[in-house]
């Protein structure tokens, strides 16, 4: 049962994008089309899954003082592997994700899960947690990309939608639309979420911006 709740918490209750608001850069940038969003989600999930396993397995060996650099090296290694695999087997995806593929290294979700979960739990739990968070990330990207692609471009995963194709709001696929859709989605989540996650659970303490971040005050006011 615990494994199941570890898995599902990442999808809705502690969704890394919509509830914890981590990894906003790739979310905004790659959610212009459904295909891109799924590709980005899959790449990040693979990295998250294996980085959680590796870090959890090495948690007793890595000295506490240098843990962050160690995590970054491990994650960068995994990202490089994923990057090479994508380049070899899905060159079109590599083209459209571009710079955001190597930037998975600095995605706060991955370092955040390493620091908050994998470094304190056993390998199996960490693997499940990584998978759940990855699926949650992919789900949020998919949701945003669906809205942006259907209304912004009049297509869904490249398939044209009859009426909307002639009446698309192309601003939604551009930069301002990304911010806008993301803002509305979080507002909807705020409206319907039955409870607010406790701040402790998603650890503003572990965020590098903790000292000066103003979202912290907002989160604690809720």
């Amino acid at each position: 049962m615990k494994a199941l709740s570890n898995f599902t918490k990442g999808i809705i209750k502690e969704n890394p994008v919509l509830v914890l608001v981590l990894g906003t850069c790739p979310t905004l940038a790659t959610s212009t089309s459904v295909i891109n969003a799924l590709g980005m989600g899959a790449a990040a999930t693979v990295v998250l899954f294996f980085s959680n396993i590796l870090i959890s397995a090495l948690r007793k060996i890595i000295p506490d003082k240098v843990r962050i650099p160690c995590y970054i090296v491990l994650i960068a290694g995994l990202v490089t592997m994923v990057q090479m695999l994508v380049k070899a087997f899905a060159p079109a995806l590599d083209e459209s994700l571009g710079i955001y593929l190597p930037l998975i290294v600095v995605n706060c979700i991955i370092l955040g899960r390493a620091e908050m979960f994998a470094s304190k739990n056993n390998v199996f739990d960490s693997a499940v947690d990584g998978l759940g968070m990855g699926v949650g990330f992919t789900f949020a990207l998919f949701l945003m990309a669906t809205i942006r692609e259907i209304f912004g471009n009049g297509t869904f995963a490249g398939i044209e939608i009859p009426v909307l194709i002639d009446n698309h709001i192309s601003i939604l696929t551009m930069a301002p639309g990304g911010f806008f859709v993301f803002g509305i989605l979080i507002a909807v989540m705020n409206k319907f979420a039955k409870y607010k996650p406790k701040k402790k659970n998603f650890g503003c303490e572990d965020c590098p911006h903790n000292d000066i971040c103003s979202q912290k005050e907002v989160a604690s006011n809720d």
Binding site: A175, F179, F182, I186, N190, V218, A219
Partner: peptide, 22 residues
């Protein structure tokens, strides 16, 4: 409005700022 407080309204403001850059 209550559900827009905090991050959502900040994002929408960012969207308008970004529009001005376009």
């Amino acid at each position: 409005p209550e559900s827009f407080r905090g991050l959502p309204i900040t994002l929408i403001a960012a969207s308008i700022t970004s529009l001005s850059f376009m």
